[in-house]
Design a protein around this nucleic acid. Structure first.
Lengths: 198, 198
DNA sequence: TCAATTTAGGACACCGATGTGTCAATACAA
DNA sequence: TTGTATTGACACATCGGTGTCCTAAATTGA
């Protein structure tokens, strides 16, 4: 074993673990059926090493989901959605999501994410609480007459995911410059595609 | 063999073939990793019979993609996107897409669809031409000052797919009544989520 | 430097999905 | 009715991904 009672956070072991998680998220985002051999190769480690860190595929998947959830939650938390006007909070949220686009793309393809997000039940570290702040922001915006009150907050949230996802996809396909995504996503999400009278 | 020169369209064989294709589209929409045994069972057919119609998995997948593409194209064609005001055409397009939601959900999860749609190269039966009429509609709307001219027609088209997909997903999860999807999708797609001054 | 630990890579068995074939029962058509 | 086509059930063989173990090499820490 290693130094007893050591938190598996820093050190060689923690670094290898993070490398595997990052490589897994990236590889699985492109192909959710990626082989453990593919993931190990992408991480620059042997397949047996990967098995030493994560006993089986399910354990790895759980870890990647939890890790991605944590990264995304932290990014959303930093957006401070509770402060300032709802519209500005929403724009910070879009920027925060684009910052962790790769993790979002991975989570998108995982069926369990729906549960984890919809339930919004705080996990052991409360990472699942992030979507609640998003719903709060939307409902606050609706109450202040800034966001459409005719549709549910849940609907607005899901449309947000969808539009952001579409934007990231466009960038990955080279159809849109990376620095133009934010403006386009915000514009379409807020105004739709119809021209409104000034 | 069967009656010589017979088009494999009607008759027992054609009916069985269509049943397999429909079941495959449905099963694969829910789980793209669905087993051939699962698909055969969903179609009410033995696995060996499925193999008799489609030699291997790839052949089945190709057939389902082509079939779905044809069904969707026909539905879009019936929307007559070239006639009347662009906004009304867009609404008919949304309705047409919702009519073939199951096929859309299946195609969404297939990587090859991107190529088939983006290329919009007419296949042997011109089924790939449908998206072109969508792009035409969008560009016409932009030229007439009805649709946002600041973003690309391609972007608008992709956002449309995404919002429709989100709506269908909400229905399947029981979060929205089936008869309410059309209004919600159109409303959000046209106006976005912000409240606009009257 | 030296010893301990970790790693990469291969060998191996296992399992599920797949592809192929056979055969009796059934449906259909002449 | 009779002969043919079609079907479902079953029996294989194969293949790829997975999980486990082992050994030589390498990295680490003392």
């Amino acid at each position: 074993m290693y130094t007893s009672g050591m938190q598996n956070e820093s050190g060689v072991r923690g670094r290898t673990r993070r490398a595997i998680l990052a490589a897994a998220a990236s590889a699985l985002a492109r192909d959710r059926a990626a082989t453990l051999a593919d993931i190990a190769e992408a991480a620059g480690v042997g397949r047996s090493t990967l098995h030493r860190y994560f006993a089986d595929r399910e354990e790895l998947m759980n870890a990647v989901v939890e890790d991605s959830l944590t990264v995304i939650s932290r990014s959303i938390d930093e957006a401070a959605l509770g402060q300032g006007p709802p519209l500005e909070g929403m724009r910070r949220l879009v920027a925060a999501m684009l910052d962790v686009a790769d993790r979002l793309m991975f989570l998108w393809g995982d069926p369990r994410v729906l549960e984890a997000f919809d339930k919004s039940s705080p996990g052991e570290d409360g990472s699942g609480a992030a979507p609640q702040s998003v719903v709060d922001l939307i409902e606050r915006g609706q109450a202040e007459g800034v966001f459409d009150p005719e549709v549910s907050a849940d609907w607005i949230q899901n449309v947000l995911w969808a539009v952001v996802y579409t934007g990231v996809e466009q960038v990955e396909k080279g159809l849109m410059p990376r620095h133009g995504v934010y403006a386009t996503v915000v514009r379409t999400f807020e105004n739709g595609i119809r021209v409104h009278a000034p």
